[in-house]
Design a binder for these strands. Structure first.
Lengths: 111, 111
DNA sequence: CTGGATCCCCTATGATACTG
DNA sequence: CAGTATCATAGGGGATCCAG
């Protein structure tokens, strides 16, 4: 739970209002988010596949990041009630729209 | 000082190697960095001007973020030995190249 | 297989005080 | 004016165990 009175929270709120770029950065700056998005785009679209590609992430964190990405409407979660349960992650339109921007960033970084 | 053995550090290293996008995100995802870049681009190019625009930032943090931006070659610091001392910050070529990408991000976020 | 619950630790962020 | 030194803290990231 976040204390709304902490200067931390105050600053966060200030940033959110003053510039949407901060909102955008918030969404993609989770430690694994960009990477997860890219892998999902490359058909690593299940929990176990993502774990295989991200060997050092813990289940817990992967779950959290996926949840946040879903909350931000970047990915869509589809539960397929097989035995065992299977879950597919796919990029939403917004998620797809983000990919070229990430590519730009990557190219910029090479500058 | 960062403990190199912490899983935190291990993961950071893994991310840095596995994908340059993380490097790029590292550079711009400091809480105030994007905002500082934008303001410098808008001629808020001195310490005190930046403080005026970012009322809730503390001297300490502003200094640190500027230092990091400089280390990342996004801004250039010019010391002008007047009395009192004056310092100008300007965007480097790399910094300027980042701006359109930030604009893209901002537009994407509005989607 | 997917991921929630719980607890811990690290580090970026911040407050404050001080210097050239 | 333009920072730096020091200290404190929140909360994001992580390990581990557990559940549907």
């Amino acid at each position: 739970m976040i204390k709304e009175t902490s200067s931390n929270a105050v600053n966060k709120a200030f940033l959110a209002k003053s510039c949407r770029i901060n909102g955008a950065l918030d969404v993609i700056s989770g430690r694994w988010k960009a990477l997860i998005l890219i892998h999902i785009a490359e058909d690593k679209n299940r929990f176990s596949l993502l774990k295989a590609v991200l060997p050092t992430i813990s289940d817990n964190i992967l779950g959290k990041q996926l949840k946040e990405l879903e909350a931000a409407n970047l990915i869509v979660k589809t539960i397929i009630p097989e035995i065992p349960v299977r879950v597919d992650y796919t990029l939403s339109d917004k998620g797809e729209a983000l990919l070229p921007i990430l590519v730009n960033l990557s190219e910029w970084y090479d500058l």
